[in-house]
């Protein structure tokens, strides 16, 4: 059971300090934030797949999936791509700077339901951000989950995020298997070339007792789901994390409405069974 931080005004963020910045690619950096108030630091917990709203006061607020795992307490890690005013301002923050964070919001992945299952992760680009939270959670509670297979695709090799973990950490965890691919060929790239679905022919996937977790650019879902269904995955064994433009994060502003569901409240994680029934979802 999660302890909820109960607030009188859910719109008002808590102050958090930037404690570390690690550049991952030209556009993506991993930010580590810590709440200023010790009490909030203690109470703040989350489910992998949930998101927070980050405020750069004077610039604006934007939603970001949490990349860290609740099994490693203390900091909130956010992998953020520079793409607009808010993200540019976050990238411009210096260590020690104060910004606002509120959350966590959304449902996150069903970590309990996934217990005992083998897990297949299919991530495209920065779609690895929320999935990394799940992967490290599973790594920390290794006995609760079965075999882990990670498919990761990026446009170019230099656009991959969390490369250290992909190449050095995760392959060394018992029963973890990692496969990577890039869309475009590169002279120094020795690995697979092709979109992420080409990995299905590189690595045989067994759908038995397996759940698939997908996150990536909007165009990716259709193709990955198609291949998973062919492999015999049931519709509720495919979990998608959908991206929408959450403005309030708490089910009011309707920006993230998909069909009759709100991504910020009912999602962002939906089974394919649910997503299929939501108009315009993928």
């Amino acid at each position: 059971m999660q302890v909820q931080l109960k607030k009188d005004n859910e719109y008002v963020p808590h102050i958090a300090k930037l404690i570390k910045k690690t550049q991952m690619t030209e556009k993506e950096t991993l930010f580590e934030f810590m709440f200023e108030e010790p009490e909030i630091r203690d109470l703040f917990t989350y489910n992998p797949g949930q998101f927070v709203q980050v405020s750069i006061f004077g610039i604006g607020e934007a939603p970001f999936s949490i990349s860290s795992t609740p099994t490693r307490k203390g900091v909130i890690e956010l992998g953020i791509r520079k793409t607009g005013d808010v993200t540019e301002a976050i990238h411009a923050l210096e260590v020690g700077a104060r910004s606002g964070i509120r959350g966590p919001y959304g449902n996150g992945f069903p970590m309990n339901k996934m217990k005992g299952h083998n897990l297949l992760f299919v991530a495209g680009g920065i779609g690895l951000v929320p999935l990394r939270s799940v992967i490290n959670y599973v790594a920390d509670r290794r006995d609760d989950y079965g075999k882990v297979t990670i498919f990761y695709g990026a446009c170019l090799p230099e656009e991959r995020v969390f490369v250290d973990e992909i190449e050095k950490v995760w392959p060394n965890i018992p029963d973890f298997e990692v496969h990577q691919t890039v869309d475009e060929c590169h002279t120094t790239w020795q690995g697979n070339v092709g979109v992420v679905t080409t990995l299905f022919s590189v690595c045989a996937v067994d759908s038995a007792n397996t759940m698939a977790l997908i996150c990536g650019p909007p165009v990716m879902y259709k193709f990955v789901v198609r291949d998973l269904l062919k492999l015999g995955f049931a519709r509720d064994e495919i979990l998608l994390s959908l991206e929408r433009r959450m403005k309030c994060g708490i089910g009011k502003c309707a920006h993230c409405q998909v069909g009759h569901k709100l991504t910020c409240m009912d999602g962002p994680v939906f089974t394919y069974f649910e997503a299929e029934r939501l108009m315009e979802s993928i």
């Binding site: 750069i56 006061f57 004077g58 604006g60 309030c248 009011k252 502003c253 309707a254 920006h255």
Partner: peptide, 26 residues
């Protein structure tokens, strides 16, 4: 209809920001 957008606006001395919600439409 209740959809809204949220924006930050700074004052002219850049010492204060207001977070403003404004009607938006789908």
């Amino acid at each position: 209809c209740y959809c809204f957008d949220v924006q930050d606006e700074v004052d002219l001395s850049i010492s204060k920001a207001e977070r403003v919600r404004k009607w938006d439409t789908c």
